[in-house]
């Protein structure tokens, strides 16, 4: 059997469709520039739950419930759930999977998780192992803050490189070719790239080399030019990391110019005190499920490359003085022909 992989890139012979997308976000995200594109905006970050963790889990459950309704895929027809989040032991995803109750792959790629889920989900469908697969990832400002940094009521100042973890979940239903308006044609799986950055308040800088590495690999493997895409959208490099990735790509001869946008820069505006922008598994997931997928569906965009970026450190590793490894996975999404 001929391999459909070239370099780091999988080419799907029968590109899986995107049947539906759902985004569920918190109040701050609902007040941002992307607000009109989200399906559900929650009025408070606790969602009526007793803890931030329960709230994040609830967001995932709601997103998947709504996704099943929107896509018309019943629970019995949903072959696999691919999910992940930022918390230790990916509890939001696993506890939501306990409720959703379908066979489940728990994924951890930090903020790159939704792209990892879309890549693997598409491979499962194209490989004939599944008909319908749900990919979902989430993050919550307060669960991430207390795990990675300080208690939420601690009066500390954030440096200008800091990013704001989005309270958001994004879910995508993948199905057989021809069933939806959008399809996933390629996925480029990133290497872990570590350029020795150590500042946990500067994720964008740590992840930018990984993003550049994966984007360059994608163009090399597919033989495509940047103008094949309306947009190359990174996950959450933010205002600090994105120009760095742009610079690294130019050095490799990849010139994205104003095709290069970033979900972290899009989800908040300057008045929202988010410093370098948004981050978190839910940031790129909700912006893709909202703004990007809907613009593709409406025909305003023809094809985008979604490049979700993750920082693979933990509190332990940075306290032990380790540098922050980055990763980026890219999926090419286009309107069905």
């Amino acid at each position: 059997m001929a391999t459909r992989k070239n370099g780091q890139t999988m080419r799907f012979a029968s590109p899986p469709s995107i049947l539906a997308t759902v985004s569920v976000v918190g109040p701050r995200e609902g007040q941002g520039p992307m607000s009109g594109w989200f399906d559900v905006v929650k009025p408070d970050r606790l969602l009526g739950q007793k803890s931030w963790e329960k709230a994040e889990c609830k967001m995932v459950e709601e997103a998947v419930e709504l996704l099943m309704t929107k896509s018309g895929v019943r629970r019995s027809e949903l072959d696999f759930l691919l999910a992940g989040d930022l918390l230790n032991q990916i509890i939001s995803a696993s506890f939501a999977a306990r409720t959703i109750d379908v066979p489940y792959f728990g994924l951890y790629g930090a903020c790159s998780t939704i792209a990892e889920a879309l890549a693997l989900g598409s491979a499962l469908i194209d490989g004939g192992f599944a008909t319908n697969v749900c990919a979902v990832s989430s993050s919550h400002h307060d669960t991430a803050e207390r795990q990675y940094r300080f208690p939420t009521e601690f009066g500390t100042q954030r440096p200008p490189t800091a990013q704001w973890t989005a309270t958001a979940a994004g879910a995508v239903m993948l199905g057989p070719r021809g069933k939806g308006k959008l399809e996933v044609t390629h996925a480029t799986i990133g290497r872990v790239v570590d350029n020795g950055m150590k500042d946990p308040f500067d994720m964008g800088t740590a992840m930018a080399p990984a993003a550049a590495d994966t984007i360059a690999a994608h163009f090399r493997d597919t033989g495509r030019d940047p103008d094949a895409y309306d947009f190359v959208v990174t996950g959450d490099l933010g205002a600090v990391g994105q120009p760095l990735a742009d610079e690294l790509l130019k050095k490799q001869g990849v010139n994205l110019e104003d095709r290069f946008i970033d979900c972290g820069k899009m989800i908040y505006d300057e008045t929202q005190d988010a410093h370098a922008g948004g981050s978190g598994c839910g940031c790129s997931a909700s912006v893709f499920a909202g703004y990007l997928a809907k613009n593709l569906e409406q025909g305003k965009f023809e094809r985008i490359l979604l490049v979700c970026t993750g920082a693979l450190h933990s509190v332990t590793t940075y306290q032990q003085g380790e540098s922050i490894p980055g990763i980026a996975h890219a999926v090419s999404v286009e309107r069905s022909g």
């Binding site: 200008p160 290497r191 872990v192 570590d194 020795g196 950055m197 500067d202 600090v240 610079e247």
Partner: peptide
């Protein structure tokens, strides 16, 4: 992949040039 020393140092210089300073 852990970057070699020259790559790391070159990247650190680039970061330093672009990094926003606290107000």
């Amino acid at each position: 992949m852990k970057a070699d020393k020259p790559t790391t140092e070159a990247y650190q210089r680039l970061v330093k040039r672009k990094a926003p300073r606290p107000p």
